[in-house]
Computed example of a mutant assay.
Amino acid sequence: MEPVRKPFQGVLNIIRFNWHFYIIAIGIVSVLILIATNSNVLISSTLYVVCTAILVTLFISLVVSWYVYDVSDLYRFDWIENMDTQNPQKIVNINAGLDESSAFLKHKFKQADCTVLDFYDPLKHTEVSIKRARKAYPPYAGTKSIKTTTLPLADNSIDKVFAILSAHEIRNEEERILFFKELNRILKPDGQLVMMEHLRDITNFMAYTIGFLHFHSKSTWMRTFSSANFRVSNEIKITPFISTFILEKNGTTS
């Protein structure tokens, strides 16, 4: 049976897991409006402009999130139609505490042996939003907890690895490179790594303002890929806000 996402599930989850940010923003706007009502025309006009900017920014970020997570093809995986999804393969899906993709991948790759790995570490990933998400969504059946630098899989054993909106949670560059070297190690010589991420670019800045700093830049990712001996065979723009890199092995890691 094909998995189905509920209407507005993505954007409602963002509000649900990050409600403290919205409460803080509404609180700031309320205080500024209170100050503005007791100030001169110049100050009150300036404060009203600031309040409007805050509210418009929140609205735009939610609209973009609704488009990306609820309207686009992100979780339908129609963008992987050119991949072989029918023959038996070994695939791995890696998440960082919130797994919204394994059920859809398993449906897409019906004949595949699918392993789900979760590198969430409560000592490193202390964001309250992730903790709330883990309470709301239990791990996919059979999910294995792992460390980013040591994957419990044999060399050259996996056909495809998916990292859907998860790898950016590895904030340390050295750790991130070691993680990608491990992905290189487990992939077969003709295997593929499919990594999907927001980028720290002007498009995501326009959507999420300072929130785009949580993402890595394309140059950072390219440096990571190169250091782990991956090459980009294709880059897919599912939306203007999401980039998917199809990576292939480019030699042996060291």
Rank of each mutant, 00 (worst) to 15 (best):
S166G: 09
L187K: 04
F109N: 11
A167K: 03
S129F: 10
I177F: 12
H107F: 11
A141S: 13
L187N: 03
P138V: 05
V116E: 01
D118E: 11
I164G: 00
L105A: 09
A133P: 13
K106E: 13
I170R: 14
K106V: 00
E182R: 11
H125R: 05
P139G: 07
E182M: 09
E174G: 06
P152V: 01
R176E: 12
P152G: 04
H107W: 09
N184R: 09
L183I: 04
R134C: 07
A163C: 15
K124D: 08
V116S: 07
Y137P: 01
I164V: 14
F119Y: 03
E182H: 10
S145G: 06
R134K: 14
E175R: 09
A167F: 01
E182K: 09
T115M: 06
E175D: 15
I186K: 05
F162T: 15
T148W: 04
L187Q: 03
C114G: 04
F104S: 08
A141W: 00
I164K: 00
V128Y: 13
F162L: 08
K131C: 02
L178R: 14
K131F: 10
L153T: 04
K131G: 09
F104A: 09
D155F: 03
K135H: 12
Y120F: 15
I130H: 03
L117C: 02
K131M: 11
L98F: 10
R132D: 03
R185T: 04
T148A: 12
T126D: 05
K135R: 15
K135D: 10
I164Y: 00
A136M: 13
I164P: 00
E169G: 05
L165N: 12
A141D: 11
A163E: 12
L178C: 03
S102L: 09
T115V: 11
A163N: 13
F162K: 03
F119W: 02
K160C: 08
E174R: 09
T150M: 05
A163L: 13
K147C: 02
V116L: 01
R171D: 12
D113L: 04
A167R: 01
